[in-house]
Amino acid sequence: MRLLTHNMLSSNIKGVANGFPFRIDVEKVVEKKVDFNAGFLRNIFPKVEWKAFVDAARTMGYPELPEEADSSLLDSDEFLTKFHHGLLELHLEEGALICPETGRRFPVNKGIPNMLLHEDEV
């Protein structure tokens, strides 16, 4: 699961008011090479919740991103390279996503998060 995906997921358990961002419990991280596309990165940047992204990247062992970022950084090749790597090339292969409000764990196996809810959570 890429951090791009993580940044767009939130808990939809019934009654949860604060389901974003999921905390990440890492068992295995893999890096998968992805073609660099600066245009995509510039277009997706405003949609990324930066603090959640940086915290998730650090949890996955990638401390290279700045604490804060604004659109002025999109002219920097160095920033775009780091942003690209964190957003698209780091994958949570095994672990769990944890709801910040309830603590409910959603397993991630072979890079796929299982977000199915139990009957009482719907």
Rank of each mutant, 00 (worst) to 15 (best):
G15I: 00
G15H: 08
G15V: 01
V16N: 07
N18M: 08
G19V: 12
P21V: 00
P21G: 01
P21M: 06
R23L: 09
I24F: 02
D25K: 15
V26F: 06
V26Y: 11
E27V: 14
E27F: 00
E27P: 08
K28F: 03
V29D: 08
V30Q: 13
E31S: 07
E31P: 03
K32D: 05
K33N: 08
V34P: 05
F36N: 08
F36M: 10
N37M: 03
N37C: 04
A38N: 07
F40Q: 13
L41K: 14
N43M: 09
I44D: 07
I44R: 13
I44K: 13
P46V: 09
P46S: 06
K47N: 07
K47E: 05
K51R: 15
K51N: 06
F53P: 08
F53I: 04
D55E: 14
D55G: 01
A56M: 09
T59A: 05
P63I: 05
P66L: 00
E67P: 01
A69Q: 07
S71K: 14
S72T: 14
S72E: 09
L74C: 05
S76G: 04
D77E: 15
E78F: 06
F79L: 00
F79S: 02
L80S: 06
L80Q: 12
L80H: 12
T81D: 03
K82T: 03
F83K: 13
G86T: 02
L87R: 12
L88Q: 11
H91V: 12
H91T: 09
L92W: 13
L92S: 08
E94P: 10
E94T: 13
A96S: 14
I98V: 15
I98K: 13
I98Y: 06
C99E: 11
P100Y: 01
P100D: 01
R104C: 00
R104T: 10
F106Q: 12
F106A: 06
F106Y: 14
P107G: 06
V108F: 11
V108N: 14
V108T: 11
V108A: 07
N109H: 12
N109E: 15
K110A: 11
K110M: 08
G111W: 11
G111L: 10
I112E: 10
M115P: 07
M115L: 15
L117Q: 12
